[in-house]
Amino acid sequence: MARQERSERTMERLVVAAADQFASQGFVKASLADVSRSAGVTKGALFFHFSTKDELADAVLVRAQDVLETMVEEMCETEPVFLQVVVDMTHALNRLLRDDAFVMASVRITRERVNDRPAPLDFYPLWLGRLWQLLDEARGNGELGRSVADASARTMVTAAVSGVETLTWTRASRVETEKWLNDLWELVLPLLKVEDEKRTAGAAAPLAQAPSLKKRY
């Protein structure tokens, strides 16, 4: 049992170190030697758990998915309006792309790794797919206007996610990106939502930071 626990701790250190290295140096530039050195383990220990950099990248992407799903679950527990969860998730992304190594690394892996087609856990398929599911929930909950086509709603969410990621990539500040998001949602929300005082969605970022957004490593 002690050997298994040591193995699990070593794997955790490697995945965290890989996320840090991919986020700071990029997927292409970061080497397995950099990861093993940062994790404080030998190259042999690294290769025991991960035979290639792609395998390490996949493990990091799984952790980025965990961050996303945990956030969605926590928000949905306290927020009954799915459209509001969509808005809040885009604001959360603005923070995660600056504070969470797993999410930051997922962007660089997606941008830099050469694939024949985007994988389900790559940054864009993962985030867009999950937010589109929330739009489906909003539709089922009667929050979207009847004249709003599903494709149009997805286009707006795609623009928000892409805009936040691009602004972060081009080194716009968190405050600047938050203002851009506020302006975007103030423009878009009246076009999407049903006018119902009991199910309103606001454009501004939530005042409280969800526990899942805190740095975990």
Rank of each mutant, 00 (worst) to 15 (best):
S106Y: 00
D58V: 10
L189F: 12
P120F: 07
R111N: 11
A205P: 07
L189K: 09
T200D: 13
R108G: 03
P206H: 03
L192Y: 07
R6Y: 09
T52F: 00
K179L: 15
L192H: 08
F48I: 13
A18M: 03
F123Q: 02
E77L: 13
G145M: 11
D58K: 13
D88F: 07
V86Q: 05
S38Y: 07
N182G: 14
G142K: 02
F27G: 08
E186Q: 11
V107P: 00
V87K: 07
P80W: 06
E74N: 10
V86T: 03
P80Q: 07
R9N: 15
Q25G: 15
A23Q: 01
M75Q: 15
G140T: 04
L134T: 05
K29I: 15
R154H: 11
M11A: 09
V62A: 15
T90G: 05
L187S: 13
F48S: 12
A57G: 11
F47K: 12
A59D: 06
W180R: 14
S173P: 07
D196H: 08
F123S: 06
E74T: 06
A64G: 11
V103A: 01
D88S: 09
E79N: 06
I109S: 07
D100S: 03
E69Y: 14
A210C: 04
E143F: 01
T155G: 14
F123G: 06
A153Q: 04
L134E: 08
T10M: 11
L191D: 13
L96N: 12
P120V: 03
R111M: 11
F22A: 07
P80C: 02
Q133C: 08
E8Q: 10
N94Q: 09
S7V: 12
L14K: 05
V60E: 01
R130D: 02
R146P: 09
T42Y: 02
R108C: 01
F50E: 04
V60D: 01
L207I: 12
A23H: 01
A208I: 13
T200I: 11
S162R: 09
L126D: 03
V87M: 07
A210D: 07
T70E: 10
L128D: 15
S7F: 15
L189E: 06
T166P: 02
N141E: 15
A203L: 01
K198M: 10
D100R: 04
A19D: 03
T166V: 14
T170S: 15
R130T: 14
L96W: 06
R6T: 14
E176P: 02
D116F: 11
M89V: 01
V15A: 03
E195I: 10
P120S: 04
R6A: 14
H91Y: 05
D122R: 05
L128N: 15
G202N: 09
A30C: 05
V114Q: 11
L187D: 13
E12F: 13
N94P: 07
M1R: 12
R9I: 12
T90V: 10
L14T: 00
A19F: 00
L93W: 00
R95E: 13
